[in-house]
């Protein structure tokens, strides 16, 4: 009996404190797949606008924002009902966006007009249009909210922008076709992935100098297969996951030594990544195998493939 009770306690302890919801945008199916992080199954598939790409959940978990790239708008869903509440006016062809901590401002990269649109989501009003390089893509906001970064695919730069005045602070030249940018949790460094260059540049936020350029010489892969795109960082700032596109692998990088600890085989054409807030799982959106791979973060192992819609691209986790 005692043993049974112990086993029961162990069971309760082992089960996660809460289940999160994972939202995946399917670029060609024009849908959003909703996954339960506890059962690791699809709970819902919701119709979205044309070509849904970048996706984020509001800080309170109540709203889901999705770039409907071919409709030039950001769709807002109620996460409780998954009903479309409204479509916000963004600039043309929105792809990725960042959000401030309060959740009332979106910073949207508009691929077609070389601008970053700053949108007040409460008033549905454009606060500013900031001219940047050609084909803006990645967007990141520093943890203190003071610096905005945009990467431009054609100009091959990370543009540092003052988030209050929207004046350009600096430009940092990185390798070809920068796709994604993320700040370290302490805000001291910015990581930028270059899809065609095949590298990740780690930039000092203070003096905007490249501290390290990470290459991915994975054994057995050709350089053209290695195309770094989406990234996620653990809260302690020690580990960064980098999606390598058509290499079908996620690189696990030690953020202190910049060594690559592992290349995990996931689905085909891996685009973006999402960590559950408890950092138990990493979800990867796989554009060609039309599925989501679940990685057990502690074991650094792919444990499951969950079928999604056609061409999954973006993925985000609920905060609660």
């Amino acid at each position: 009996m005692k043993a049974f009770r112990l086993a029961l306690v162990a069971c309760v302890v082992a089960s996660p404190a809460s289940a999160y919801r994972i939202y995946v945008t399917n670029e060609k199916a024009n849908t959003i797949t909703v996954i339960d992080s506890d059962t690791l199954t699809v709970t819902q598939t919701v119709k979205a606008g044309r070509r849904p790409r970048g996706v984020r959940v509001s800080p309170d978990g109540k709203l889901l924002y999705v770039c409907a790239s071919d409709e030039d708008g950001i769709q807002v869903f109620d996460t409780a009902t998954m009903k479309l509440l409204r479509t916000l006016e963004s600039g043309p062809d929105p792809e990725q966006f960042a959000m401030n901590a309060a959740g009332d401002l979106l910073y949207i990269a508009n691929e077609d007009n070389a601008q970053v649109t700053v949108l007040d989501v409460v008033k549905n009003q454009v606060v500013a249009n900031v001219p940047v390089g050609v084909e803006p893509e990645g967007m990141a906001l520093s943890p203190d909210g003071s610096v905005l970064v945009n990467t431009s695919e054609t100009t091959n730069m990370a543009h540092f922008i003052d988030a209050k005045t929207f004046r350009r602070i600096d430009n940092v030249l990185v390798d070809k076709r920068p796709r994604y940018a993320v700040f370290t949790p302490d805000g001291s460094r910015l990581w930028v992935s270059s899809e065609v260059g095949g590298t990740v540049s780690v930039i000092s936020a203070k003096n905007r100098e490249i501290v390290k350029k990470i290459r991915f010489d994975a054994p057995g892969l050709t350089p053209e297969e290695v195309q770094p795109v989406g990234m996620r960082m653990t809260r302690d700032g020690k580990t960064v996951f980098v999606a390598l596109g058509p290499a079908n692998r996620v690189a696990v990088v030690d953020a202190e030594t910049f060594e690559i600890r592992k290349y995990i085989l996931v689905g085909q054409r891996v685009w973006h990544l999402a960590l559950t807030p408890d950092e138990r799982y990493l979800f990867t959106a796989n554009g060609n195998s039309n599925d989501v791979t679940v990685i057990d973060v502690a074991a650094l192992k792919a444990i499951k493939s969950i079928p999604a819609g056609a061409a999954p691209l973006g993925v985000a986790s609920s905060p609660n």
Binding site: T154, G220, L221, E224, E225, P246, R249, Y263, L265
Partner: peptide
């Protein structure tokens, strides 16, 4: 963008053989 290979008409990049490591 200017094509790297004049004889390649596809939007997908012309890539060499599928590597073992990319799928195995």
């Amino acid at each position: 963008p200017p094509p790297a290979d004049e004889d390649w008409p596809c939007p997908q990049r012309r890539a060499g053989a599928i590597s073992r490591a990319a799928i195995w």
